[in-house]
Write a protein that binds this DNA or RNA. Structure first.
Lengths: 214, 214
DNA sequence: ACCAACCTGTGACAATAATCACAATCTGTT
DNA sequence: AACAGATTGTGATTATTGTCACAGGTTGGT
């Protein structure tokens, strides 16, 4: 049975490290859902919010592991998630997901293939999980939910394009300046070493870029 | 009025260089549409195919220009389309779209903003155009079409992710080898100079990568 | 066949980034 | 306050890529 987020039911969700929160403020969640698309009618928001399960994840614990199938979308309520790829034993950061943002293992969820990436908590993190299988079981008949999931996929893919363009069009220094301007919170919350691979440079190079930028 | 592709009607589509073809073989088009998603029912294919207008584009002519709004999806029947970004006066190739593949200006069509990219024919090219405004006017009531367009957006975005990953994870040499293995047709049909910016290197560097690879 | 325009290969050199090594600084705990 | 462990800054050196210049080859049109 799926938690209804009304404080009256438990979830039997499989992760071993879940901590269930009662009476969480749902209006914030509904606002985050609304951000996915202006075109979601306000009257659908309570139903969509009820699809999500709220969990706590400790720093370093994974929501998706490399090689495992991913069937969920994750919405960060507090803290942040770090998505990384294992290249020859080295972790390459592909994404940081902060409060109010959605993420998932895009290829895994689309193609039903093992995830190539790991998604883990970068600090103590609270997450809303939209699990496709649970939703299908419980809410399969609701067209609003099916439509929301489609919009969510497009939303997440468009967001990730933004970061991709950085690599195709800009030099490492220009990438840093772009983040400085458009996502300064990232620079404040993530360590230089972690940001380096996210920008496609070594930590030494990023340190020097930062030094030249005053 | 929209051409019905049955050879009985003309389109008044606005591009000045259109050549209308009558009695084009629709089964190939339907096959391309089916490639977007296995889940499209076969009985919907004739309707979806009827949304498309068939045009010819001469080499170098643009279907989407930087600064213009893009409201269409393009499916290449023959030839290829080249999508490029103007960086400080230099053309950076972002995408090559070959027979059976779809493309569009993703950000423009999603956000209703001027296109940042230009999409033009790399050689004499035949294209099926799915124009959103025409489709809305003529077929707005058909839920199969609305669903197809959503699937098409996801399909195109997922394809473009493939190319983005090249930049985030691999060196220029590794990118070349990836293309060699996974898209050898591209290397045969596109000139070295054009491929260079697509791989994020200068033409001299790509020439040397190719030389070392035998 | 000829020519002009374009494309490709390659050398010399400059600029940029990676690698290695280590010092300095920061952080959290006791 | 003192310490250990992690993070960051920086110099020296190497490797990679870009820039500039030009030679040779290819292509398409008359």
């Amino acid at each position: 049975m799926l938690a209804k987020n009304d404080g009256k039911e438990f979830s039997n969700y499989q992760f071993p490290f879940l901590i269930y929160i009662y009476g969480v403020d749902n209006t914030i969640l509904q606002g985050y859902i609304k951000n996915v698309s202006e075109r979601i009618p306000d009257e659908d928001l309570p139903l969509l919010a009820s699809c999500a399960k709220y969990i706590h994840v400790k720093k370093g614990e994974a929501l998706v592991k490399e090689g495992e199938l991913c069937r969920s979308f994750f919405l960060v309520e507090k803290g942040y998630l770090r998505t990384w790829f294992n290249k020859d034993g080295v972790e390459i950061n592909l994404d940081f997901t902060f409060e109010g943002q959605f993420t998932t293992s895009r290829k895994s969820i689309k193609n039903h293939t093992p995830s190539e990436v790991t998604i883990e908590a970068g600090e103590k993190t609270s997450v809303w999980i939209f699990d496709l299988d649970s939703i299908n079981n419980e809410f399969g008949a609701h067209p609003q939910i099916v439509l929301f999931i489609r919009r969510l996929v497009v939303h997440i893919l468009m967001m990730s394009e933004e970061h991709s363009d950085l690599f195709k069009l800009y030099t490492p220094t220009e990438r840093y300046q772009y983040i400085e301007k458009n996502n300064p919170a990232l620079l404040q919350r993530i360590s230089l070493s972690q940001i380096a691979s996210y920008l496609g440079v070594t930590r030494e190079t990023l340190s020097r870029i930062r030094a030249k930028n005053h």
